[in-house]
Amino acid sequence: MHPAQLALAAGVDLKWIQNARRLLGRTPRHDAREARWLALVHELHVTLGCSLAQAARVADRALATGPEQRDLRVALGTDERAELVVDLWRDSTLHLARLARALTMPPPERRGRPPSGGSPRGSVRTRARVYGIDVDRLRAARDRTPAERLARLDDNLAFLTEGRAALARRRAGA
């Protein structure tokens, strides 16, 4: 995971992550567990007003619990008049949703100079051909009905699924 991906997985601004880490003296890591930890610290600190150190302690405890535990109850203050309840299943649900998005639709990793904004040259057809797209095949297929197109997609998907399963079986047998 690169930094922008971590920020998306945590649902938190990258600058906030850098500042929080510096204040807490935390070593930078870029993995799923860190994304969940950061998201929870942010929620407790920014939304609920816990101190950053207290939010970090609660997040440490939350991540140390097993998946069967639904809630985490933490006393606020020393006389136990008030307590904070973290819905761990809801937290893991939101974490998984953000993580899956960050992994399957990763934001671009910003490195170096941005690409120049020059407009592409040539007609659409020429550019498509240069890119390797079979324009004649597209034209030949234009008279298919939506049902035929959907059926082709299903066939392709079935072929891919079958191929992947065969590969997995081969790997398991090897």
Partner: peptide, 26 residues
């Protein structure tokens, strides 16, 4: 269940999750 992530953590598939997550890759 969310795609491309390891299974194991609880995932509550309900209306609250839909409202909280503008994009769900499942």
């Amino acid at each position: 269940y969310p795609r491309s992530v390891e299974r194991g953590l609880p995932f509550l598939m309900d209306a609250r999750t839909l409202r909280a997550a503008p994009v769900l890759t499942l």
